[in-house]
Design a protein around this nucleic acid. Sequence first.
RNA 1: GUGGCCGUAGCUCAGUUGGUUAGAGCGCCAGGUUGUGGUCCUGGAAGUCGGGGGUUCGAAUCCCCUCGGUCACCCCA
Length: 415
Amino acid sequence: MPEYRAPVGTRDVLPPESARWAGLVARFATQVGRAGYGLVVSPMFEDVEVFGRVGETTDVVRKEMYDFEDKGGRRIALRPEGTASLVRAFVQHRPPTPFKAWYAAPSFRYERPQAGRYRQHHQLGVEVLGSEDADIDVEVIALADGLFREIGLTQVDLHLNSLGDDRCRPAYREALIEWFTARRGDLCDEHRERIAENPLRILDCKRPECRAVSEGAPRMVDMLCEDCAPHFARVRAGLDALGIAYTVDPRLVRGLDYYTRTTFEFAAAALESSQNGIGGGGRYDGLAEALGGDPTPGIGFGLGVERILLACDAEGVFGAPDAAVDVFVIDTTGGDAALAITHELRAAGVAADRAFDNRSWKAQLKAAQRAGAALAISVEAEGITIRTLREKGQAEPVDRADIVEHVRKRLAAAD
RNA sequence: GUGGCCGUAGCUCAGUUGGUUAGAGCGCCAGGUUGUGGUCCUGGAAGUCGGGGGUUCGAAUCCCCUCGGUCACCCCA
């Protein structure tokens, strides 16, 4: 074993797998760019309070945060998710609203790794600040849905819920506390003592005891106030209008405290593991204010790159593309022909590669085939020839000065 | 943080009840063959058997510790 390896819970992404990453990010960037979202690059770490402020009762913040003191004595945390950083940036810079942003960035959580769970994972996300229009909720959900379709995933289930707002959630909370307190003895050990702290989390508990108790519990969707109810109705109508299938799941509770109103998760049915959540998000109308800004509604989502690719593997879609150059330059003359010709081809926009280290003609040809090249240019003492590689063909002589033009014609003819 | 399983070549693995210089396939390198071309043939490089300690005449093999991987719980992307 090597002396040094990637830290626990992290991994290196090498070709050809890395090409899938690049492809996924590129497709995402194209889709959200088309919808008017601009890229935001923000720091991977923040003052720990930025995250502490938004999830005090959540495991992500309480137990899993990568926090440390820097050399200046500041309390720093690597970001566990993207939304808090982005909203902090929004509050700091006050861009015009609606502010529509996207990001592709790593997130860090200190937990034991397992299938589809890493200490450093990568999220693709969007956030919209400054609009409470339900159509924005629909747009955001449609963007995630559109990405899945774009890359060929078909077995993705959308779960939808509304968590209400400051006006209706407190009453719901009380109703839940009342419900669970009356049945305290039937809850699992952990939640028996934490009813008042965050009763909504019990709805999300997977233990059979809790599930049984939750079964008949009050539902937020039945207690939405006169603002939240029509908002939720309009979100549903919008999704229906776009033909996006969803399931209303009254027990859907997100893992972060800041969510209000619309919340959603995407689950990959092809992944059997409990790590089948490939993305989620929702509205966070109080978050900007909690981070010191003006009250500003917001909504967004985060999608897990690693998990999306696992889901792609499970469905057999969006495989790693074959890396292939157009032309491979073989040179047995030992001069600078390979150097110069490869350079010229690249400058002309042709994907070109070559061998190094004075390998034999045969070895260079094998390298050309391994590189997936369509054409090989062979520079030998007797002259320069060009030949096709993907199917067997005659080697044709070509003049040194005509190479680029000749290659262009051959490639154009092949398309 | 808790628990199960697993660590032998770059990769996938074999290695008998503990017994001599630890093997195969793929990949890599070289040579041969094939129209100088994906095949085929021959050869080569490459492993402190994850690390440390113990038992033993003798450990890849048995025991302990440790590190790592993996899976599950918890939680989440």
